[in-house]
Amino acid sequence: MRKPLLAALALAVSTAAHADETVITLKNAPGRDVVMNNCAACHSLDYIQMNSPFPDQKVWEAEVTKMIKAFGAPIDDADAKTIIDYLSRNYGTGGPT
């Protein structure tokens, strides 16, 4: 039931054709595709950039859990782990060691 990125972008076009969110590029690092496939269904990816780089791993974990539990994001455990890892390394304080 996962929404692939294409569906997300099509939706963006239908509800807000003026908003050119395709200019958003997330940092190229392992896990980026999983993030782009799971985190753009309901909002543009600038939500991630805007909320960076202050969150530590715990805060990113809480955010991803909130997306799943409170907002119904259909993300399985393995993907959630990959996403948390990618975000804390690239958009958080838990950068590459």
Binding site: A12, T15, A16, H18, A19, D20, E21, I24, H43, S44, D46, Y47, I48, Q49, M50, N51, S52, P53, F54, Y91
Partner: peptide, 26 residues
């Protein structure tokens, strides 16, 4: 936040003058 400073931009929605875009969708 540094991430906000780098992604925010002046953009105009239909019927609006350019405002400070924090997120496109919503």
């Amino acid at each position: 936040p540094a991430g906000t400073l780098s992604e925010a931009a002046l953009e105009a929605l239909p019927g609006k003058v350019p405002l400070i875009k924090l997120s496109y969708r919503p």
